[in-house]
């Protein structure tokens, strides 16, 4: 397997945290090559799901092992280099507080384009098209506090897609939503697994996980099960 193929790949990945006198292995010896499609990561609270996502996305550096995103070795790159890889190849949807509160929905979606240096006109055009895609074209000039939780998450999805990422990360994206709004957000997210794109969906809800192409189960920081969905 060549490095260029390592769209999202981890080998013997580990993360230890020090808490006072004791060391906690939040993640241990995690090895997995994420195939295209949706991969759900499940496990009880404290099992290391968020820790794994932080490492896969390059938010944090691993204590051990290797992690590749879009062929780039995140474990060996500095802060700004990892940020550059994220901007170019990854999109994010968090549980809540995703949006920049002082920017409108349109400006939020256009933000990655701004970082990339896309000129304003084109930025706004593309952001508007993305908002239309998530069904919020009519909310473009609204600010985050004027949007419902579900709408906020959909704006976040539109923003995550702005630079057509290879990998889309979502950490409990429906955790704060009622079932109807959650369903809509979830459908939107699952629909993004097209072509080479990988979607990583962290959740503790097994019903949601069942709709992914495969499920990784973590327990006490270890990968204990890899199961293809029926």
């Amino acid at each position: 397997m060549s490095e260029g193929d390592r769209v999202l790949y981890a080998a013997h990945l580990g993360k230890r945290y020090r808490q006072g006198e004791v060391w906690i292995d939040a993640l241990r010896d995690f090895t997995f090559d994420f195939p295209p499609g949706v991969t759900a990561v499940v496990g009880p609270s404290g099992s290391g799901k968020t820790t794994l996502l932080n490492l896969l996305a390059g938010f944090d550096r691993p204590s051990a092992g290797e992690v590749y995103l879009a062929g780039r070795p995140l474990h060996a790159l500095g802060e700004d280099e990892r940020a550059g890889v994220r901007l170019a190849h990854a999109g994010f949807v968090f549980q809540s507080w995703n949006l920049l509160p002082t920017l409108s929905a349109l400006e939020n979606v256009a933000f990655p384009l701004l970082l990339k240096g896309v000129p304003r006109r084109e930025r706004n055009q593309r952001a508007r098209a993305l908002l239309d895609e998530v069904g919020l074209g009519h909310r473009a000039s609204h600010f985050p506090h004027q949007l419902s939780g579900g709408e906020q998450q959909r704006v976040a999805i539109a923003r995550a897609l702005a630079l057509d990422p290879l990998v889309l990360f979502a950490d409990e994206p429906t955790g704060n939503l009622d079932s109807a709004a959650g369903e809509r957000v979830l459908e939107l997210l699952l629909g993004q697994a097209r072509g080479r794109r990988r979607v990583v969906l962290v959740t503790h809800d097994l019903e949601i996980a069942a709709r992914a192409h495969r499920i990784l189960r973590l327990k006490d920081g270890r990968l204990v099960e890899v199961r293809a969905s029926p």
Partner: peptide, 16 residues
């Protein structure tokens, strides 16, 4: 801080 975290997550460099 949260806001800056979101910006950095999206891909803003420290200099930004």
């Amino acid at each position: 801080i949260r806001e800056f975290g979101v910006m950095r997550a999206i891909g803003a460099r420290r200099g930004f």
